[in-house]
Design a protein around this nucleic acid. Sequence first.
DNA 1: TATTGTTATACTCTATAACTATA
DNA 2: TATAGTTATAGAGTATAACAATA
Lengths: 138, 138
Amino acid sequence: MLERRAGEHGFSLIQTRLLGVLRDRRPTINELATLLGLNKSSVSGLVDRAERRGLVRRIPSAVDRRSVQVALTEDGRALASKVSARFGADVAAMLGPLTAADRATLTRLLSRVLVEHAAARGVDMLATGANARAGDGG
Amino acid sequence: MLERRAGEHGFSLIQTRLLGVLRDRRPTINELATLLGLNKSSVSGLVDRAERRGLVRRIPSAVDRRSVQVALTEDGRALASKVSARFGADVAAMLGPLTAADRATLTRLLSRVLVEHAAARGVDMLATGANARAGDGG
DNA sequence: TATTGTTATACTCTATAACTATA
DNA sequence: TATAGTTATAGAGTATAACAATA
């Protein structure tokens, strides 16, 4: 569903993940590669294409002249918010048939599965707040 | 997780979906395009690459000489089974932390959400048996 | 005329390896 | 020497449009 919503705005799942990751970070290319699980050269091209569309920009690092920081533009932030909101509405609609009590149960069980799955891989989802955001690539 | 398991055997998610779809069907290129949600020219290339690896073969249709049927080879079937089994084990391990009762509850609630979501799009999951198979592209 | 599948073309996405600028 | 990022290259995956063969 996220991919379909992104497609409505003419961009891909990985571009959506890029925008999502940048909503609360200003990472370097290397950090982005780790966050997205990609090679740094892949990220370089990804950022090129997003920059060409005016969604992100490269900011030279003040402390290390080899390095750049990648940040959302206003257009990029607006697009990320719109796609995220629509995706959230999709999920809400999908859960509509359940009673409120069943939705609460489902949320509790799934959260536990996901948190423990992440913990088994050394990621503390409760600490980062990643569990509260949709489409952030985490 | 499915993509990661597929990657262990050197192939992609879409190739895995192709093999999964072919486990109980022998569709034409056009039918595959509908099943996978792709353009027929994309499917033509997809089948080319799978055929080059010996995983599928093209069988000329007996009734329409324009048409071909795509079928798994023995190698393709073995690979599909192996990836499917590993993915099933991944899911089982992920649900391990839950009690048996919680697993049953989660299964019941998720099944209902998915079945109704499919029904809203005109797909009867209970009739096709698609709900009983992992990695079949449905 | 219409349909099936392939091919030509163009673009995104991905990785590896080589490169540059800086550290 | 080591690291950050880019570029060259190669390949998969995708769509559109044009095409050949068949219906």
